[in-house]
């Protein structure tokens, strides 16, 4: 691959990774569907597909990192990468918006209607007589049985502080990178990764408590559904973000990134801030109110 001058266009050479990724995705999701249909071997082909996907991610990112370190990319490529990441995060925002939408719809419309408000009077009268519009609720049939909720100002508040602190540490790492203070960079990043995994640890603890002691499960009506889907998808994103930060930290330790050129670092930092902001929404609308 020849080095390109700043004013010429850059087009990468061909790549085998996408087709590998497609095969992995097909195998993983096809197996997941068969697993849901109680197939005995699907579990193993699912892991096989996931393995292929991970192989693809490592290989593809590895290639891009090598090219980047070799100085193949010009500033136009850098801008394309930035736009790609920003629009990807926007798509993630819309994904969470969908589940927040479900939460708001349930609280503003469906639960009050079931309780007899607005146009729901007849439903309440005929089907669910005596059902009161309250939140949290497992619905008029009390699906999943009695449950209690996680108090906001316990672990969730602690997790809020942890994520906010991690937003601070990753920003400090960025400043260190810009000033070329490599040691401080790695230390601040290590702190961020650690905070990320501590968050995930507490989240797991919270789930165990919910299932074991509070009777709050995914099946606890609309409250359980929205609670676990929102916090669950968020937790997955935190896990992914923490892994991404870990990779960036390892790259920093190998001497990657320059004070004026470090898109990979910034992309992950953006992602981390996005995860942070989603959590603030969760804390306010899922736990506090």
């Amino acid at each position: 691959m020849a080095q390109h001058a700043e004013n010429a266009y850059y087009v990468p050479h061909g790549t085998k990774w996408p087709i590998i990724g497609s095969i992995g995705m097909f195998l993983m999701l096809g197996s997941a569907a068969m697993w849901l249909n109680d197939s005995a071997i699907a579990k193993w082909t699912f892991y096989g597909g996931a393995g292929i996907l991970i192989y693809m991610l490592v290989g593809w990112f590895g290639e891009v990192i090598r090219e980047s370190e070799d100085g193949v990319y010009n500033s136009q490529v850098d801008t394309s990468f930035r736009m790609g990441m920003l629009w990807f995060i926007f798509s993630e925002v819309m994904f969470f918006a969908c589940f927040f939408g479900a939460l708001f719809y349930a609280r503003v419309f469906s639960v009050p209607w079931l309780g007899g408000e607005g146009t729901g009077a007849f439903t309440n009268e005929m089907l669910w007589q005596g059902y009161q519009n309250v939140w949290p609720t497992a619905g008029p049939a009390q699906l999943g049985g009695e449950f209690q909720t996680i108090p906001a100002f316990g672990i969730p508040f602690l997790n809020t502080l942890i994520l906010l602190a991690s937003g601070f540490t990753v920003t400090m790492a960025h400043h260190a990178l810009k000033k070329n203070q490599r040691k401080a960079l790695v230390l601040w990043l290590a702190a961020t990764v650690a905070l990320g995994f501590v968050f995930v640890f507490f989240q797991v603890e919270e789930y165990i408590e919910a299932y074991m002691e509070l009777g709050l499960t995914l099946g606890s009506g609309i409250y359980g559904s929205t609670f676990f889907m929102l916090t669950g998808f968020h937790g997955m994103h935190v896990t992914l973000g923490a892994i991404m930060l870990l990779v960036i930290m390892l790259r920093c330790m190998k001497g990657h990134f320059k004070p004026d050129q470090h898109f990979g670092f910034e992309a992950v930092a953006w992602y981390w801030h996005f995860v942070d902001v989603v959590w603030l929404g969760l804390f306010i609308f899922v736990y506090v109110f």
Binding site: A102, Y105, A138, G139, L143, G219, I222, M229
Partner: peptide, 20 residues
């Protein structure tokens, strides 16, 4: 997985799906 997004018995609403 037993969620109740579109199940009125659990406090959800099939119409919610149509909106989304």
């Amino acid at each position: 997985f037993g969620t109740s997004f579109f199940n009125a018995a659990g406090g959800g609403d099939p119409v919610m799906f149509q909106h989304i």
